[in-house]
Design a binder for these strands. Structure first.
Lengths: 201, 201
DNA sequence: CATTAGGCAAAACAGTTGTTATGTGAATAC
DNA sequence: GTATTCACATAACAACTGTTTTGCCTAATG
């Protein structure tokens, strides 16, 4: 039977075990995707029976919600881990360094995130977590701009545009594989971002 | 039994009926998505049995391929139907007018396309059709730029960046619903596009 | 030591999946 | 007018889906 808190909402059994499981699950999803997620293959890949999943997450729907919440929470760490985020020269440097990381070592996770964002935009994924992730990214980049003296409102607008273009270039490259064309556009985007931080905009 | 052509590959029964079906199917997918597509509910929505689908498309996989090919082919018409595409002043006008159309009357189809592009970028959708669609869009915008005197290579790079940013803003708006923030970024994007066509870039 | 509680596997559950075999009725060809 | 082809519905098939029941085994509690 389920412990209860605050308003009668069922609470997870062992929060630490939940997080441990979620990390393994995210690793699995990065390779297999989330759109066609099925409990039995997932459980088998984890070396468990499907009951571990229903036991800790009650539902498939709630499992997916937990996954999205987990990814949302891990985003802060991912943003801080962005190369050049500390005190690199301009915003363009961050863009260029991020691209190298995202399209290299981090590529499986990027694929998963792109898939999730597409499904969420299409209205096929409920919950507040994906919108929160997008908003968080916008605020992160906006803060970088503000730290370079860009007025707050302009910073948020520029951050939104930069993130959108960056995301779109990721999708373009991942589907077409046209490295030359996409990276030329990325270079132009990075230069544009540089003009924003060397306040001659 | 199947008629054959060229190399022994089975050919569709009645090509005209196929197209008619595909149009209805795309209408259904625009409302229900493609990630969780199931043959029985689709067939029921069309007022048929599932056999109509397997009969005309042999497979679920080939049905999806046919859908993607169909969308790829209809893209040319969609691009020509873009408001302001004829001989509007600058590229920014096309951007602004397209946004109004895509986020209004055309929104269900945009949602479907966003979902498909996300799945394709994540590697969950095979076949040449989605890459071809992205490439076609890049070439369309590049041609608009070339017609305004932008050198061919620069035009393709700018077109890639513009499409990526536009796509990303669509995703942002569709998931966060933050109209003010996203449309501010769109306005900036449109202005940027205008600087490209009033060759002072 | 006895008892309980919790994590978990195994198996069973009903419902759904893609696919195929069979049958029917209409249109076409001979 | 007979034969053939074609589009399609119906129904069956095995495989898989999410979920639940049962029972085991271990660790904490009394």
């Amino acid at each position: 039977m389920l412990c209860e808190y605050d308003g009668g909402v069922p609470r997870p059994r062992d929060p630490q075990r939940r997080i441990e499981l979620l990390d393994q699950i995210v690793g699995y999803l990065a390779e297999h995707g989330i759109a066609q997620l099925s409990l039995r293959p997932l459980a088998k890949a984890l070396g468990h029976s499907t009951y571990v999943l229903t036991h800790h997450f009650t539902d498939k729907d709630e499992l997916i919600s937990a996954i999205l919440a987990h990814l949302d929470q891990r985003q802060k760490g991912r943003l801080r881990a962005l190369p050049g985020g500390e005190e690199g020269r301009g915003l363009g440097d961050i863009v260029r360094a991020s691209w190298a990381w995202h399209m290299g070592e981090d590529l499986p996770m990027v694929r998963l995130l792109v898939e999730i964002e597409g499904l969420s935009a299409a209205g096929r994924l409920r919950g507040p977590y994906v919108p929160r992730m997008l908003g968080g990214r916008a605020e992160f980049v906006a803060d970088v701009l503000r730290a370079r003296g860009v007025p707050s409102g302009v910073a948020l607008r520029n951050a939104t545009l930069l993130n959108a273009a960056y995301s779109g270039l990721q999708i373009d490259y991942l589907t077409t594989g046209d490295k030359e064309r996409v990276e030329a556009a990325l270079a132009e985007l990075a230069e544009l971002a540089d003009t924003w931080t060397s306040n001659r905009g």
